Simulated assay, not measured.
Amino acid sequence: EPGGIAVLDALARAARVLLPLTVQRGTLLEWAVYGGSDTLVAGPLGLRQPADDSARGDLADAEVVLVPAVAMGLDGSRLGHGAGYYDRALAGWPAERLVGVVHDDEVALALPAGPHDVRIGWLCTPTRLQRLGE
C-alpha cells in the first residue's frame, strides 16, 4: 500500500490507529493500537503487526477504516489477496466509512465481486481522494 510506515506515523500523531492482528492463519482479524514501527513484529502471515498483546483495540470504535487492496474499482469493488480477512472483518460496515488505499495504477472501472465482498465507499491514492459508486 502507498505510504507505509511514514503514513502510519503521521496518522498516529493525529488519531488512534488500529492495525490488524492475525493471531492464526484463517481466523478472524483482531486489532491492536499502533505504537510505532519499533513495536511491529512479523505475524503468522509474514506481515508486520503490533507485538504488544495488551494494546488491543476494538474495530467497532473506528470512525474510518483504511482498507488495503491489490486493486480498487470505481464502483466500490475491491480486490484483496484472496483470503477474505477484511471482507469478514468489515461485513455490515457502511461503505462511506471504508477507504480503499491503492496506488494510482491499481484503479479500474470495476472488478469482479461476489456477494461476500464488502463494497468500499472511498478511494485514496497518492494523488486523489474520491467518493465511489456515485
Rank of each mutant, 00 (worst) to 15 (best):
E1P: 08
G3K: 03
I5L: 15
D9Y: 07
A10E: 12
A10C: 05
A14I: 03
L18E: 09
L18F: 12
L19D: 06
P20A: 11
V23S: 10
R25D: 08
L28C: 10
L29C: 05
W31L: 02
A32I: 08
T39P: 14
T39L: 09
V41P: 07
P44S: 14
P44K: 09
Q49V: 07
Q49F: 04
A55H: 06
G57L: 03
G57F: 03
D58L: 08
L59W: 10
L59K: 11
A60G: 14
A60I: 08
E63Q: 10
V64E: 03
V70M: 13
A71E: 09
G73T: 02
L74M: 09
L79T: 03
H81Q: 14
H81E: 13
G82C: 02
Y85N: 02
Y85P: 02
Y86M: 10
Y86S: 04
D87R: 09
L90H: 01
A91D: 12
W93V: 13
A95Y: 05
R97K: 14
L98V: 07
V101P: 01
H103T: 05
H103N: 09
D105Q: 07
E106R: 05
E106Y: 01
L111Y: 00
L111E: 03
A113M: 07
P115W: 13
H116P: 00
D117V: 14
R119D: 01
G121M: 09
G121S: 11
L123P: 01
T125F: 00
T127C: 00
Q130S: 12
R131W: 06
G133M: 08
E134P: 14
E134G: 11
